[in-house]
Design a protein around this nucleic acid. Structure first.
Length: 499
RNA sequence: GGCGCGUUGGUGUAACUGGUUAACACGCCGCCCUCUCAAGGCGGAGAGCACGGGUUCGAGUCCCGUACGCGCUACCA
């Protein structure tokens, strides 16, 4: 057990999206690899935009991904007193000052313009920056509103060694006197994180690259507070297909991890996919592999393996089949068809319960059949949801499954003779004493010879009659899985479907 | 505008401290198998490493510049 402590600190302004999920994952992998602690902290200081529902969404997302934490969840909003105390401490030590500029003068609507203007001028120092402490105290005592700003020294620079991006430096003159405490007494983000990270003994801050410039400000605060600065590792961003920033507002549900849960992703598969977005193992012996178990990921994970350029997450809204990154879909399929059946089973059962296809007998008297059937059909499924859609014909006794129009046309309507052949075939099947793969195949082929038709005609016709589809596993496996009774009934029913 | 970061096939990644025809995966295309395919097997196309200079016997790997992208630049996080 090491004393390494990391944290995932999302702000609950929306659901957990894939970018946040990956940040959480990398923190988690690092903590597990190093034998450290993972802490969850909700950054809810912006009460306007935070809600309990969003917090629940984040917790749900993490639980689904299997990212557990050792401490927390802590809520940043419950530490405001400590934040204020830290701000006052900096005021006392001369690292901060009260700024009495009325809020209206720094109104949002004019901000962009001000920035643009200010950029052309040498930095104009705030008139309150060097206001005497006594006068400052007096004005504060009269109730005049003020913010507390950090007093960035005029000369010098901050620097830190980022585990991913290397040495980072920033001239003090490029850092503005940031606000620590709002005029209503609310602590702001940069103050909050630092105080909390100190309080929680965070040793490694692993977060998105969009925080890299905040880091310089935060280092200043660490120094002003006289505390050691943690190690930093900034992660490349995950971009939308247009290479823009992933945005909840613009991209909606498609970037939410709960979407992937609901669409039938296997958590390990999604974790596997996420891990490879911006990271690759250093270990050469594993270079040409892509599928890694959770434990392998933990063993292989290193901060050095994280790379610097942003990754594109290729989702594809509107395309029903390839609605999200094709590699993610491929990987999920890979997990579904290769993972140990007993690990897959609970997920399949949950899926069938969700769609009311589950029957308790599947777990008892029909268990052997159920296991065999799942093992058979999982071969070409890509999501757990496929068990309910494409798998439906195997789980219902009636004909309440969808007959794909194209399949009906291709396999049933193709030859009118099928309308008499299929019911006749049904009779042959009904007469079979042993309803096995070989027996049904022998019966069908003999029947085809007898009638002078190609076996394929009957096989494909039967496929659609039994499952409503044009694709699926080897036909005689399907027949056995569907069973004698239902096979006979559905073959006889084929004519009705066509008409 | 300023500051910072990045740039290897469509996408995700690899290429030891510069040294063979730039590798792997997804996707795509074709072939084979076959009762179908969204399965399996085999093969192929696709980047000469953003661009332009330089250093070097030799650069995707080092240096400089340009372009493009992204981030930050709030009394948001």
């Amino acid at each position: 057990m090491s004393d390494i402590r990391v944290r995932f600190a999302p702000s609950p302004t929306g659901y957990l999206h894939v970018g946040g999920a990956r940040t959480a994952l990398f923190n988690w992998l690092f903590a597990r690899k190093m034998g450290g602690k993972m802490i969850l902290r909700i950054e809810d200081t912006d009460t306007q935009r935070s809600s309990e529902e969003m917090v629940r969404g984040i917790l749900e997302g993490m639980a689904w991904l299997g990212l557990d934490y050792d401490e927390g969840p802590f809520f940043q909003s419950s530490y405001v007193e400590q934040h204020r105390a830290a701000a006052n401490q900096m005021l006392d030590s001369g690292w901060a000052y009260r700024d009495f500029t009325p809020k209206e003068e720094r109104d949002d609507s004019t901000i962009k313009q001000q920035i643009a203007d200010a950029a052309r001028q040498p930095k104009a120092l705030n008139p309150y920056r060097d206001l005497g402490r006594e006068e400052s105290d007096e004005r504060a005592a009269t109730g005049e509103p003020f913010v507390i700003r950090f007093k960035v020294p005029e000369e010098g620079k901050t620097s830190f060694d980022d585990a991913v991006y290397g040495t980072q430096e920033r001239d003090y003159k490029d850092i503005e006197d940031l606000v620590l405490l709002r005029s209503d007494g609310h602590p702001l983000y940069n103050l909050g994180v630092v105080v909390d990270d100190i309080e929680m003994g965070i040793t490694h801050v692993i977060r998105g690259q969009d925080h890299i410039s905040n880091t310089h400000k935060q280092i200043l605060i660490y120094q002003a507070l006289g505390k050691p600065v943690p190690k930093f590792a900034h992660l490349p961003l995950i971009l939308a297909p247009n290479k823009g920033k992933l945005s909840k507002r613009k991209h909606g549900e498609i970037v939410s991890v709960t979407t992937y849960r609901d669409a039938g992703f296997v958590p390990d598969a999604f974790v596997n996919f996420l891990a490879l977005l911006g990271w690759a193992p250093d270990d050469e012996s594993v270079r040409d592999r892509e599928i890694f178990s959770r434990q392998e990921l933990i063993n292989l994970f290193t901060l050095e393996g994280i790379h610097k350029s942003n990754a594109v997450f290729n989702f594809n809204e509107g395309d029903a089949r390839n609605w999200t990154d094709q590699k993610a879909l491929w990987m999920n399929a890979e997990y579904i068809k290769t993972m140990p059946l007993d690990q897959l089973m609970p997920m399949v059962i949950a899926e069938l319960k969700k769609t009311r296809l589950w029957r308790d007998e599947f777990a008892v008297e029909k268990k052997a059949w159920f296991d065999r059937t799942i093992d058979l059909i999982r071969e070409r499924f890509r999501t757990l949801a496929d068990f309910s859609t494409y798998g439906r014909p195997y789980f219902v006794d009636d004909l309440s499954f969808e007959f794909d129009e194209a399949a009906v046309k291709k396999n049933l309507r193709k030859d009118p003779a099928l309308m008499t052949l299929l019911p006749e075939l049904a009779d042959r099947f009904a007469a079979l004493e042993e309803f096995s793969h070989d027996a049904t195949e022998a019966a069908m082929r003999a029947f085809a010879d007898e009638k002078g038709v190609k076996a394929g005609l009957l096989i494909n016709g039967a496929r659609t009659a039994l499952t409503g589809q044009s694709v699926g596993p080897s036909m005689f496996d399907v027949i056995v899985a569907v069973g004698q009774e239902r096979t006979v009934a559905r073959l006889k029913h084929a004519a009705i479907i066509v008409n």
